[in-house]
């Protein structure tokens, strides 16, 4: 599988935020999207996920332009966890909803365990701390297997140990042929990752 972007331009509110972004990502590779605040890192990731329109340029998967959204995971600033449901119920729902061709990933308990969070399985998501909520959202990566991970500031609110757990999960994903694209300010421990530097849009 290969995700390729050529001269990608993205507008927001009538202003060009991302201008001419190029990247080429294939199995097992990782790409760090770097740049100062407001450079368009989140905008780029949301556009790749199909949540924002692409103004110009080409984005294709294995040479085809369609259905990129259903092969990727997007972890944004909002966690997508319903406070009224337990963490396990939230993850079980996303596992069923985001499954591709009926293929399930790891169980919610197992996925939470990978982030050292197995004990919150039955607790309503509304009671979690910011860091726990972020880890629960990251556990979504494991309940539905998808090859491309788009991570927007994945280490926000994570303690050092959880950052280590995330690093391990990401390494396993890449070893299995997965791709990772992460917008971040802090080092993620992605070995041999490429870098896409976005400047402040003029």
């Amino acid at each position: 599988m290969r995700l390729k972007a050529q001269k990608l331009c993205i507008d927001r509110g009538g202003r060009r935020i991302v201008e001419g972004a190029d990247f080429d990502l294939s199995d097992g590779q990782a790409l760090i999207v770097a740049g100062p605040n407001g450079a368009g890192k989140s905008t780029l990731l949301r556009a790749i996920a199909g949540l924002l329109p692409i103004a110009a340029g080409a984005l294709d998967l294995d040479g085809e332009a369609e259905d990129i959204a259903s092969v990727l995971h997007y972890i944004g600033h909002a966690e997508g966890m319903k406070p009224a449901l337990s963490v396990g119920e939230n993850l079980a729902f996303w596992g069923a909803f985001l499954a591709r061709d009926g293929k399930r990933g790891r169980s919610p308990a197992d996925a939470l365990g990978a982030f050292g969070l197995a004990h919150v399985l039955d607790i309503p998501a509304g009671y979690l701390s910011a860091g726990q909520k972020r880890r629960a959202a990251l556990a979504r990566l494991l309940v539905a297997p998808r090859p491309i991970w788009l991570l927007d500031e994945p280490t926000t609110a994570l303690d050092v140990r959880s950052q280590g757990a995330l690093g391990q999960v990401m390494a396993e994903h890449r070893a299995g042929g997965g791709m990772i694209m992460a917008a971040t300010h802090s080092p993620l421990g992605l070995e041999g990752a490429g870098e896409l530097r976005l400047g402040i849009a003029a």
Partner: peptide, 14 residues
């Protein structure tokens, strides 16, 4: 929309 579920709901095959 507020809690980000709407983004995820757009990523499904549905």
């Amino acid at each position: 929309w507020e809690d980000g579920s709407l983004d995820q709901l757009q990523l499904g095959a549905t």
